[in-house]
C-alpha cells in the first residue's frame, strides 16, 4: 500500500470530511484534494510540492481521494505560518465536472445596469432570505450615492454592491488559513469551517466587501423565529461573510438569488468566457466599466452605464 495507508488516521474520517459536509442533492464531488491531511494534528504535510502531488494523485489512494487530474491552476503552494512549511492550498475545482460534461471552463461574472436600478432593495432581501444571513449581515447592498452634480441635472444613482469575485482576488492571497477559496470558474467563497475571523480579507479587499459576524441575538432580540433557527445553524460565529455567487445554485444551472429577484432586470450574470452568453451580449450593447479597475484586481463585475459599444468579456480596453 502507499504511504498514505500506513498513516491511515481513519480513512472513514477522511471520507466523511470530504463528503458529508455537503448539502443533500449536490454532486458528491470532494471539496479538496488534501486539506484534511494538512489540518490534522499529525505532522504529515504531504505532498509538499507539485511533483509529489502529481505522483500521489496517480496512486490508488490518490485516485480515490483526489478524483481530479491535477492542473496547475487548481492548486497552489503557499507558506503556512503555523506549520512552517509550504502547503497545498487548493482551488475547489469543478474541472472534473466540467471535463466530464465536456464543457469549457467558465468564468462567472455579473453586470449591474445602473440605468435600470431603481434602488428598491429587492436583491438585498432576496439574498438575505436565500442564504439566511443573520442580523446586520448583508452580502448584497444597494447604496444610494450622493449626487455631486449641479442641482438642475442632479440625479440619484443606486449602486448595487457585493463581492466582485475578482480574478486577482486580494482576499484569497491574504487569507492565512486558506479559508477563502477561488474556484476555477472564478467564484470566490469563504469556507466558514476554516475561517477563524482574522479579517485579513477585510483589510485586503479594496471594495470593503467582507464583514464579520460576531454572533448576535436574532432579529427580534429574544426568541429566534423558526426560520432563523433553521438558517443560523449554517453560520459560524466570528467568521468573515461575503457573497459567494450562490455557487450551489450556479452548480445546478440556476441564477444567483439577487439576479433572479431583480424587478427591473438590472442585474445579470453569465459566463464571461462564452461569447454568446447574456452577459457578453449586454457588454457589447452597453457602455460599461469595472469598479476601481486601476487596482488590477480584474473584478468579475461590470457596471452598465448606457448605450454604446463594448467588447466581449468586457475587456474593453
Amino acid at each position: 500500500m502507499s504511504s498514505l495507508s500506513a498513516n491511515n488516521h481513519g480513512s472513514k474520517g477522511l471520507i466523511s470530511f470530504f463528503l458529508d459536509s455537503q448539502e443533500e442533492g449536490t454532486p458528491k464531488v470532494p471539496k479538496y484534494y488534501t486539506p484534511s491531511l494538512l489540518r490534522h494534528d499529525s505532522v504529515i504535510s504531504f505532498p509538499r510540492n507539485r511533483k509529489m502531488f502529481k505522483s500521489f494523485s496517480k496512486t490508488w489512494e490518490g485516485i480515490l481521494f483526489c478524483k481530479f487530474r491535477l492542473t496547475s491552476q487548481s492548486v497552489r503552494f503557499k507558506r503556512n505560518a503555523t506549520l512552517g512549511m509550504k502547503v497545498a492550498v487548493p482551488y475547489a475545482d469543478r474541472t472534473y465536472t466540467y471535463k466530464r460534461k465536456g464543457l469549457a471552463m467558465a468564468r462567472w461574472g455579473f453586470t449591474v445596469d445602473l440605468e435600470r436600478c431603481v434602488g428598491c432593495q429587492t436583491c438585498v432581501i432576496a439574498c438575505k432570505v436565500a442564504n439566511g444571513t443573520p442580523q446586520n449581515i448583508h452580502w448584497m447592498k444597494v447604496l444610494e450615492k450622493k449626487e455631486e452634480n449641479d442641482y438642475s441635472y442632479a440625479k440619484r444613482t443606486f449602486v448595487p454592491v457585493r463581492c466582485n469575485h475578482c480574478e486577482n482576488a486580494p482576499c484569497v492571497t491574504s487569507c492565512p488559513t486558506g479559508a477563502i477559496v477561488k474556484r476555477a470558474d472564478g467564484i470566490v467563497y469563504i469556507d466558514q469551517d476554516v475561517c477563524i475571523g482574522t479579517m485579513a480579507c477585510m483589510t485586503a479587499c479594496p471594495y470593503y466587501v467582507p464583514s464579520r459576524w460576531d454572533g448576535a441575538e436574532g432579529y427580534y432580540k429574544g426568541k429566534l423565529t423558526r426560520y432563523e433557527e433553521m438558517k443560523l445553524k449554517k453560520f459560524k460565529k466570528g467568521t468573515a461573510q461575503k457573497c459567494h455567487f450562490c455557487y450551489r445554485r450556479i452548480d445546478k444551472g440556476r441564477p444567483p438569488a439577487c439576479v433572479e429577484s431583480c424587478p427591473t432586470q438590472a442585474l445579470s450574470y453569465g459566463d464571461l468566457e462564452d461569447p454568446e452568453s447574456p452577459i457578453n451580449t449586454l457588454l457589447k450593447q452597453k457602455k460599461h466599466f469595472q469598479p476601481r479597475a486601476e487596482l488590477g484586481t480584474n473584478p468579475g463585475l461590470f457596471y452598465l452605464t448606457g448605450k454604446g459599444g463594448g467588447k466581449v468579456g468586457g475587456m474593453g480596453q
Binding site: R116, C117, F158, P263, T264, Q265
Partner: peptide, 25 residues
C-alpha cells in the same frame, strides 16, 4: 416590473419635487 422589461423603449420623465426613486430611474 413592467417598466424593467421595456426600459430601453420608453422615455420616462419624472416631474416631482423630490428625485427619490422615480426620478432616480
Amino acid at each position: 416590473f413592467e417598466t424593467g422589461r421595456n426600459r430601453e423603449k420608453i422615455k420616462v420623465v419624472s416631474v416631482d419635487p423630490s428625485c427619490g426613486y422615480g426620478g432616480g430611474m
